[in-house]
Simulated assay, not measured.
Amino acid sequence: MHNTIYNQRGAGLIEVLVTVLILGTSLLALAALQSKSLQYNHSAYLRSQANILAYDILDRVRINRKNVGSYNQKMDAAKPAGGTVASNDIRDWLTTIETMLPGADGAVTCDANSLCTVEIQWAEQSSSGEKTEEQGSFVYTTQI
């Protein structure tokens, strides 16, 4: 009898399956990482917008410093009807908040010592763009 030894050529089916499994798992992990990255980036964007909007109302209060007490606005309260500079500022600010942040509302509290606190709340969104149960919040306190 004649024994012939054949050299292996190419890859076996098991090696190809293991490679595909590793590659598929890696691609799924990268997709999940990208999705979370987008979600965190959007959350940071909303927080930056809230920061800018808080500075906006505080600058309006500083301009109308003699009427600091007129800027008090509770969370979930109706928008002021207008008539004074302060009520117009609050109404415009609340409208801007609703436009810029999803499901947002704001509050301003100024005391007799001209210490003002601005609070803005909004609904966070998932990576698919749907609103979640999580609530974003930004609070800023400063002396006017």
Rank of each mutant, 00 (worst) to 15 (best):
N113W: 09
I120D: 00
G136W: 06
Y45E: 11
S128F: 14
G103W: 07
N72F: 06
G24L: 06
Q125S: 05
G12Y: 14
I63V: 14
T141P: 04
S128P: 02
S137P: 03
Y140V: 13
A44C: 07
T95G: 11
A123T: 10
G10E: 08
V85S: 05
I144H: 04
V85G: 03
T117C: 11
R47V: 08
Q49N: 03
D56N: 12
A50R: 00
R91V: 06
T142Y: 05
G12N: 15
T109S: 13
V18T: 12
C110F: 03
N7G: 09
T141M: 13
S128R: 08
E133F: 07
G24C: 03
D76A: 11
K36F: 14
T4D: 09
W122G: 00
S126E: 05
L53D: 00
V20M: 15
R60H: 12
H42F: 14
L115Q: 05
I14A: 15
A50K: 01
C116W: 02
I57T: 02
T96R: 12
E124H: 15
I63A: 15
M100S: 07
S48N: 13
G69M: 10
K66Q: 15
L101D: 00
Y140A: 09
I57K: 01
T132V: 13
S114A: 12
L23R: 09
N41P: 01
N7P: 02
D92C: 05
S128Q: 08
A77R: 10
G24V: 04
R62C: 13
R91N: 05
K131M: 11
L23Q: 05
D56S: 09
T25I: 13
A81Y: 06
L46M: 08
V68L: 12
W93G: 02
A32T: 08
D76Y: 12
A44P: 00
D105I: 02
L115E: 04
A86C: 07
Y55L: 13
R62N: 12
L27Y: 06
Q125N: 06
N67T: 06
Q49D: 00
I57N: 01
K79A: 10
N88S: 11
G83S: 11
I22K: 10
A77N: 10
A86S: 07
T99C: 03
T109K: 10
E98I: 02
T4F: 11
R65P: 01
N3H: 15
L101V: 05
V118F: 02
R47E: 12
R9D: 03
V61H: 00
K36L: 14
Y40P: 01
Y71N: 03
V108Y: 00
V20P: 00
Q121T: 11
L21E: 13
G136A: 11
L115A: 06
E133K: 02
T25N: 12
